[in-house]
Measured scan of single mutants.
Amino acid sequence: MPSETPQAEVGPTGCPHRSGPHSAKGSLEKGSPEDKEAKEPLWIRPDAPSRCTWQLGRPASESPHHHTAPAKSPKILPDILKKIGDTPMVRINKIGKKFGLKCELLAKCEFFNAGGSVKDRISLRMIEDAERDGTLKPGDTIIEPTSGNTGIGLALAAAVRGYRCIIVMPEKMSSEKVDVLRALGAEIVRTPTNARFDSPESHVGVAWRLKNEIPNSHILDQYRNASNPLAHYDTTADEILQQCDGKLDMLVASVGTGGTITGIARKLKEKCPGCRIIGVDPEGSILAEPEELNQTEQTTYEVEGIGYDFIPTVLDRTVVDKWFKSNDEEAFTFARMLIAQEGLLCGGSAGSTVAVAVKAAQELQEGQRCVVILPDSVRNYMTKFLSDRWMLQKGFLKEEDLTEKKPWWWHLRVQELGLSAPLTVLPTITCGHTIEILREKGFDQAPVVDEAGVILGMVTLGNMLSSLLAGKVQPSDQVGKVIYKQFKQIRLTDTLGRLSHILEMDHFALVV
Rank of each mutant, 00 (worst) to 15 (best):
I44Q: 15
K172S: 04
K82Q: 11
R91P: 08
E128R: 03
T146R: 06
T68N: 15
D249L: 02
V204C: 06
L42G: 14
K211C: 05
A107E: 06
A231V: 13
N212T: 14
K36W: 06
D221M: 01
K119N: 04
R125Y: 08
T13S: 02
G116Q: 07
D47L: 02
T146M: 04
M173T: 07
G153H: 03
I95H: 00
I240Y: 01
E131Y: 08
V178R: 10
I122Q: 00
D120N: 06
L136E: 03
L251G: 02
T193S: 03
Y223N: 00
E187D: 09
R132F: 07
K269V: 02
P74M: 14
R161T: 08
I95S: 02
M126W: 03
G11Q: 01
Y233M: 00
S63L: 02
K72Q: 11
K177V: 00
V255W: 02
C275M: 09
D179M: 01
P46N: 02
A60D: 02
N113I: 03
D129C: 06
D129Q: 14
E176L: 08
L56P: 11
V204T: 14
R58V: 09
K247Q: 15
D129E: 13
L154C: 02
L248Y: 02
G205P: 09
L101D: 00
L156Q: 01
W54T: 06
P145W: 03
A159S: 02
P74A: 14
V168G: 04
R161F: 07
G185Q: 01
N216L: 04
E62L: 11
K82E: 12
L124P: 08
K267D: 07
P49S: 15
S32G: 06
A195I: 07
A253I: 02
G134V: 07
Q55N: 15
S227R: 08
K25V: 06
P200E: 07
N212E: 13
V252A: 13
L56G: 04
R276K: 11
L251S: 01
A157F: 01
C275V: 12
K36T: 07
I127P: 05
I95Q: 00
S63Q: 03
P6F: 07
K119V: 00
R58F: 11
T13A: 14
F112Y: 03
A226G: 07
K211A: 11
R161I: 08
V180W: 00
I44M: 12
T236G: 06
A159L: 05
K82T: 03
F197E: 07
A237L: 02
P46G: 02
E201Y: 04
L210K: 12
C52T: 03
H17V: 15
P16M: 09
V189N: 07
P64S: 06
L230V: 12
N93C: 12
E34K: 12
N149S: 02
P2A: 14
V10H: 02
P12S: 12
P145F: 03
P46H: 05
L210Q: 05
Q222D: 02
G31S: 14
F99W: 12
G115M: 07
G263T: 01
K172Y: 05
N228Y: 02
S199F: 03
D129L: 08
S254E: 02
K247A: 12
L81Y: 04
L248I: 13
G153V: 03
P192T: 08
P88E: 04
L156E: 00
P192N: 04
T191M: 01
I240V: 06
G85F: 07
T193R: 08
V168P: 03
D133T: 09
M169V: 06
E171W: 05
L230A: 06
V252K: 07
T87I: 12
N225K: 07
E270C: 05
A69R: 09
A195Q: 12
T191F: 01
L210M: 08
A8R: 14
I219V: 08
Q222V: 02
G31A: 12
I95L: 04
G134D: 07
L156S: 01
D249S: 06
G153E: 03
R276H: 12
V204I: 03
G31L: 02
A71F: 11
H65K: 03
C52S: 03
